[in-house]
């Protein structure tokens, strides 16, 4: 099965990763951020301007600065979550998806 990739852009740091939307869900609140799936550079929003500092041991961390992006509270955003965050206009989507055709 082809994995669907929704991403903002190519990563400006490593040039080969995809800057993808990831969400942190805690107590029914959703916090979105952007994470490169190759070098794990993280940003607060799709502008890719404000980098989120890495946490302990150099691991990428959520905007709260405490939670690892690979913790159970985080996952790659679904298209519904991207819409909830209001970032759907910022993303690129595969052409074979409904969103990709619409964009």
């Amino acid at each position: 099965m082809t994995k669907k990739y929704f991403y903002i852009d190519d990563c400006p740091i490593c040039s080969q990763g995809l800057a993808r939307v990831r969400v942190h869900v805690r107590k029914q609140s959703l916090t979105g951020y952007i994470l490169c799936d190759e070098c794990e550079a993280a940003w607060n929003d799709p502008s890719l301007l404000g980098r989120i500092p890495r946490g302990k041991e150099g691991d990428a961390s959520c905007p709260d600065g405490k939670t690892s992006v690979w913790s159970e509270h985080c996952h790659w955003a679904s298209i519904e979550e991207i819409c909830l965050l209001g970032w759907y206009k910022d993303i690129k989507a595969p052409k074979d998806t409904k969103l990709g055709k619409a964009l």
Partner: peptide, 26 residues
């Protein structure tokens, strides 16, 4: 670390192609 759980696993992805992945994949 990384999504794969260990950096060695993470870089191991570059031993094979991911033709459906958007962008470049060395």
């Amino acid at each position: 670390g990384s999504e794969e759980g260990h950096r060695l696993k993470h870089i191991e992805r570059h031993l094979s192609d991911m033709p459906d992945r958007p962008g470049s994949h060395g």
